[in-house]
């Protein structure tokens, strides 16, 4: 074969990859700077501060922000969480049951309550007394809010549990059964405890979702001592014709949700470490 001509030269004429990268990065910084300057010059900072971060209005929110609003948010979220944890586990077990109608019921439930907007469920709950004369959700507004969150949350939690139950190796059931445990006993002592441990991280995320969805209690027409963060912020905002209370409520949500989010991802990282 004839000797190849040297071909290293042509690349020289163009920019090296490193140079190209530098230029590209420079352009990105330039765009960012232009946007920032634009926002700073365009926005009316005084007016924004007046409407979204007004000190006097923010002070009005205390101490009820924590003693009533946050407390109620936590009551709704924890209540809805307990509800959805229990019902979710039952639904997951039904979903995996040998009995076909159980599977159907569970699938139907899960599909409906995951498919509907949570808001719709809350609106429907307000019509329950009309539909069922004489029926009252126990614990009043708390009961209604917890019912709404629980109905929706359990559909999601059921799928979380299903994944966990299916992730327990088949050999675990075989070992339990070969020791003479009944199918029910094997589920109870061997499968469910392992499944619950496995789903702790996604379940934490579910709790965060419920905490945020508790703002839908707003649509139950609550008032006074039953208000949670969103309603509380909204009411104060109307009263002062100022958005600051909504911002304050938002920050309060973040104080709870961000640490929980970190907790969930930490738990996720640790998963499997003990195995």
């Amino acid at each position: 074969m004839a000797e190849q001509p040297k071909t290293a030269e042509p690349a020289r004429a163009r920019l090296s990859p490193r140079k190209k990268q530098q230029i590209s990065r420079g352009i990105q910084y330039a765009i960012l700077a232009v946007l920032l300057v634009g926002v700073i010059l365009y926005a009316d900072w005084g007016s924004l501060a007046q409407n979204f971060a007004k000190g006097e209005v923010a002070r009005e929110a205390l101490p009820d922000l924590f003693t009533i609003a946050l407390r109620n948010t936590i009551i709704y979220a924890v209540g809805g969480f307990v509800f959805s944890f229990v019902l979710g586990l039952v639904l997951a077990l039904m979903r995996l049951s040998q009995v076909l109608p159980y599977r159907w019921i569970a699938i139907l439930y899960i599909e409906i309550f995951r498919g509907l907007p949570a808001l719709l469920i809350f609106l429907l709950i307000t019509f329950l007394p009309l539909a069922l004369p004489g029926f009252e959700v126990p614990f009043g507004t708390y009961g209604q809010g917890i019912l709404g969150l629980g109905l929706v949350g359990s559909a999601y939690q059921a799928e979380v549990f299903r994944a966990g139950l299916q992730a327990v190796p088949k050999g675990q059931i075989e070992a339990a059964r070969s020791l003479g445990m009944s199918a029910f006993r094997a589920q109870l002592t061997v499968v469910i405890p392992q499944a619950v441990r496995m789903v702790i991280p996604p379940t934490t995320n579910q709790f965060v979702a419920l905490l945020k969805d508790s703002s839908l209690v707003l649509f139950l027409g609550v008032s006074g001592e039953y208000v949670e963060l969103a309603k509380f912020g909204n009411d104060l905002a109307s009263q002062f014709a100022n958005a600051t209370p909504i911002m304050v409520a938002g920050v309060t949500y973040l104080i709870v949700t961000i640490p929980l989010g970190y907790l969930a991802s930490r738990l996720e990282g640790r998963k499997g470490g003990t195995r």
Partner: peptide, 15 residues
């Protein structure tokens, strides 16, 4: 099954 002990290839201890 109570009268039959079984040992598995993968041990299947409860973790």
């Amino acid at each position: 099954r109570r009268r039959i002990g079984m040992v598995f290839q993968q041990f299947n201890l409860f973790p």
